[in-house]
């Protein structure tokens, strides 16, 4: 049996939780004071995901870079692969919020989209 220590991010209480794992399955969650903590802990230890935000280069725009995000959360383990893929991307101005700058980032099936409008210089 493995144990994982977590701090809940559900509310400002920040409960310190202990998750007991058995062969990759959640056996029990303790230390939480509400159901949301239990749910967060179970997801966090089995399939933690995050939205990734970054920037990519822009050519011919008023700014040299445009901010982007993964449209949905992606597995935590794919964050750096996603960043590496984004490092190779350059887009042409104008860019509009929601434009796909990188489809299917790092094989996650999730597109990376622009989060800012950058007009032509």
């Amino acid at each position: 049996m493995d144990t994982r220590e977590l701090i809940c991010i559900g509310c400002p209480m920040g409960c310190r939780m202990t998750v007991n794992m058995d062969k990759g399955q959640v056996h029990s969650v303790s230390g939480n004071t509400c159901k949301r903590g239990d749910a967060y802990a179970r997801k966090e230890v089995t399939n933690p995901t995050r939205i990734v935000t970054s920037t990519v280069r822009v050519e011919g725009g008023v700014l040299p870079v445009v901010s982007v995000k993964t449209r949905e959360d992606i597995p935590k383990g794919k964050i750096f692969a996603c960043m590496e893929a984004l490092a190779k991307v350059t887009v042409q101005a104008p860019v509009a919020i929601g434009d796909v700058v990188l489809p299917d980032a790092a094989g996650t099936g999730v597109d990376v989209v622009a989060t800012k409008n950058v007009v032509e210089a």
Binding site: S67, K69, T115, K116
Partner: peptide, 10 residues
Amino acid sequence: EELTGPEYAA
């Protein structure tokens, strides 16, 4: 919904 700063501003 959860937005980024530039999206909220926009």
